[in-house]
């Protein structure tokens, strides 16, 4: 497991690995929003939690098809499947590597982008916390989508179509934590739900991902 994680991280930061692309995409989305809705700082502050969550989600989506497709193309996936690693472990490590290279940078950058969108002061903490709890779920669900579409030539669009509906609960509770936090309301319920979804997804979904990956390797 550890060598696989190390290799994936090394691949991500080397030339052509795509590290930072998600972050750049996130920045662009945040930059474009005021052009679309107008520069009034009161309006921007009100929609900031939702926009930041949506931007993070789309940035995450952008890199999902790299999780497994590259290993599929060069045959690594076949060879990994014959290695003494459980398939569930492989997909979990893949999801973890995706989170470390895409999700975590988004979490760290989100407060900075919050400034651009005039996020209310109490919102920074809750936005960061909700992203920290929610983005792992996005990576794990995304890995499931990637495992479903790994054998398809133009699977990218289909991957989005399959994964986005699965993102609905995470997005709702995550954005709700950030919004309520920014408005100074209680956040316990959505926070618990968000954490619950993340934990359940991390614990259970790798079994489904491994099952579909085995089918695709057949």
């Amino acid at each position: 497991m550890i060598p696989l994680l190390k290799r994936d991280l090394a691949l991500a930061v080397r030339a052509g690995g795509g590290f930072g692309l998600g972050l750049a995409f996130f920045l662009i989305v945040v930059t474009l929003v005021p052009f679309a809705v107008g520069p009034q700082s009161e309006l921007l502050g009100r929609i900031a939690p939702g926009i930041l969550w949506l931007g993070a989600l789309l940035a995450c989506l952008l890199s999902l098809d790299r999780i497994l497709a590259l290993d599929w193309e060069d045959g690594s996936l076949d060879l990994l499947a014959t290695a003494p690693l459980p398939m569930e472990g492989i997909v979990s490590v893949k999801a973890l590597a995706h989170w470390l290279t895409t999700g975590l940078p988004l979490v760290i950058a989100a407060p900075v982008f919050g400034v651009l969108l005039n996020l209310a002061a109490p919102g920074f903490f809750w936005l960061t916390l909700s992203l920290l709890l929610g983005t792992p779920a996005l990576s794990v669900i995304g890995t499931f989508g990637a495992a479903l579409t790994v054998g398809l030539k133009r699977g990218g669009l289909l991957l989005s179509l399959l994964v986005l509906p699965l993102y609905v609960p995470t997005l709702i509770f995550g954005a709700e934590v950030a919004r309520r936090g920014a408005e100074g309301m209680g956040v316990e319920t959505p926070l618990m739900m968000l954490a619950g979804i993340s934990l359940a997804v991390i614990a259970l979904l790798p079994f489904a991902s491994a099952a579909v990956l085995r089918v695709n390797l057949r």
């Binding site: 479903l148 399959l162 699965l166 609905v168 609960p169 709702i172 509770f173 319920t189 489904a208 579909v212």
Partner: peptide, 22 residues
Amino acid sequence: LTSVLCLVGSVFAVLSRYAVNF
């Protein structure tokens, strides 16, 4: 693949229903 998607989707559909209610 579609069977697994249907299973996973069902769970997420129920989850979404509660999330949307909330």
